[in-house]
Design a protein around this nucleic acid. Sequence first.
DNA 1: CAGGTCACGC
DNA 2: GACGTACGTGACCTGG
Length: 879
Amino acid sequence: MSKTKKKLVLIDGNSIAYRAFFALPLLNNDKGIHTNAVYGFTMMLQRILDEEKPTHLLVAFDAGKTTFRHKTFTEYKGGRQKTPPELSEQFPFIRELLDAYQIKRYELENYEADDIIGTLSLQAEKDGFDVKVISGDKDLTQLSSDKTTVAITKKGITEIEEYTPEHIKEKYGLSPHQIIDMKGLMGDSSDNIPGVPGVGEKTAIKLLVQFDSLEKVLDSIDEVSGKKLKEKLEEFKDQAIMSKELATITREAPVELSVSDLQYDEWNVDKVVSIYKELGFNTLLEKMGTAGEAVQEEIKDLSFEIVKDLGEDHLTDRAALYVEILEDNYQHGQIIGLGLSNKNGNYFISAETALQSEKFKDWAKDEKKLKQVYDAKKSAVSLKLKGVELNGIDFDLLIASYILNPSESADDFASVAKRHGFHDIQSDEAVYGKGAKRKVPEEVETAEHIARKAAGLSAVADKCEEELKQNEQFELFTELELPLSLILAEMEAKGVSVDVDRLKDMGDDLRTRLKQIEEEIFRMAGEEFNINSPKQLGVVLFEKMGLPVIKKTKTGYSTSADVLEKLEPEHEIVRQILHYRQLGKLQSTYIEGLLKVVHPDTCKVHTRFNQALTQTGRLSSTDPNLQNIPIRLEEGRKIRQAFIPSQKGWVMFAADYSQIELRVLAHIAGDEKLIEAFNEDMDIHTKTAMDVFHVKKEEVTSNMRRQAKAVNFGIVYGISDYGLSQSLGITRKEAGEFIDRYLESFPGVKEYMADVVQEAKQKGYVSTLLHRRRYIPEITSRNFNLRSFAERTAMNTPIQGSAADIIKLAMIEMAKRLKVEKLQTRLLLQVHDELIFEAPEEEVEALKEIVPDVMEHAISLKVPLKVDYSYGPTWYDAK
DNA sequence: CAGGTCACGC
DNA sequence: GACGTACGTGACCTGG
């Protein structure tokens, strides 16, 4: 069962409602009730329940207008804006909602929510609770202690700042209890607390650092430096003391509740649903269907050591090494620390300790010292950025797990480790938080988490290797994916040079043209609107201008390109909109998007290849995605002019496989006709047209070839008859007939398709040439759609996946050849069937031989592989 | 902030 | 007949 640590969460209800109200636009539901504060409050509550998993919970509210503080100071909270009626009307709903959630709420005559929270948090601390206070009011931070964390909303409803005593020390240089002394000195305009005129945050902190408390400051006014300051302190002495009193949260309010009354179990689903319905919270309603309670498993103790002085005990010849970085983008992120696990024990090493240690660097570099890691590429790149070379990797859990089952691979270490039998680990989200809340906890907690990861690595490595061997995937792992990860690491670290000025010029040009087109569209529409909003565009086109509605989406009219293309003859505006979209895409994604990620010093972009994501074995690319740079249309293609070699006298050299998937299909299916076509190096689309339409080569029209090409495309990507009908603009029935005729023309392919579906049903998975697997459980589904999809997946994955295997082989072989031939040429990118290099001009002649040779002979099939290449001063020219 | 729509590549 | 249809990433808009 769950760990029985008691946790009390105290929420400042008024404050959070205020925050939610002002953070969100003033929306109302269909009955005209404003719901933004209730909605924001609900989101916040949901988050707290999910993330904090409190055992005890209370929402405190302010009661009435006056409190005991007004006796001290009648103008307390004077001058405050009256609560807007749009907000006050929402409070009853918030109360109703809390009741449905079965969360205790409480207010107390003469006291503020703060005081209720102050009183109960103190009680709870004494009873051994962990306490979390949630508010938008920084005053509450005075309650922070080693047992109580105060979370203050920053902006919006999701960003919060957590105030622990350490954080307060860091931020102000003060202890939590000094917050009230600070308020006494500087006052608080929002509560109309006067403080000492002329004293602001800086001065207050300075004084408190020197004298500790307000009282001591006032006792030692003589020692205060600055004549003016002395006078002010003297003059406003009493006011300061009163201000401190006002700012002090009482911890002895006559609260009639005790902490044990605040136990939180679960909400009343029916009531919550009915309130959601009443308020129109449809997305929350939908979510409830799937909301399951995660069961927290007990985590065993782990003995580990925080290492300050690295020695032989730690740097052994076989060890698990975990490099921890919080940011997704490990090229920007800081290394938090390293986990090590070996026969001697489990260790945590801070980043500073490791990176300053020559012993560590030597060990990391030594390829004889074998390491087991999680995400070799990330580890290698991040260490490389710190000047540390990483060699000797003989196991990577991320990749092993991906190979064993690509559909399950998540990048969260805990989930991967658990899948392979190591359970004593928390999720990163539980330790570090997520989104805006993500942060590093105190060192011991961090250290333990990271040490656990290393321990987990060494615990599951052997078992995973065994499993890989049983699946006949060990070679795929050691000979293909592991070496590839280091090649990708080099590609990422090296980066691709970008001609920033060129991009900016294109951007300027595009901006002018977009403006012109925009004006033209507005003129034709007779009004200004947001062309980028499908909703607004739909209204203009289909309601105002009365164009025929061709397709609808869930949310309204479809305005997708294929719809607009059909509408082109109807009105000139349609052509302009398509053009606007095209240029807008170039501007936002490729010009602005790319400029955003160019390294300012080096003018390079460093993409990250995800090697453990796609279901087929392909790579993907992010930040920026360099696998979808435009090429089809000339205007977009020009973007490629901005990708240039990193050195003078160098060129871009690109080589791509011609029809690799169809060649793979010919091989796997063993289809005689297809094999023959490739052996004779025929134009495959023409050949397909000849066979499908039963005509001679000379009789193939360009339209027949186009249709044959679409069918081939469909085969390669496993699209359905529906998909084919869409791409050819024909009916589904016609498309189905096309596919049938294709399969009749290539009986080997037809047989293969039937066999591979059969195989998938029997084994539960399909395989590529290099034994990569994809499990397809839906293949036995009784749901037609799921099953059809599964069948197409079964037919397509071995084709696409084997092609991915082959180009990966080629990449590894290329790296070897470049080294052997002592060439300076470097591989920069892989785009599924294409490799892009940068090369000194004088090496081009050699590359013309080597690159096609390596790529074409990466594997031997029943058909030849064919590679085309090209080169030039920019990527654009390498076409 | 999450989910939808659209658009780019292979 | 079934109702949503190759795989990815990213930008923008929108609702609650």
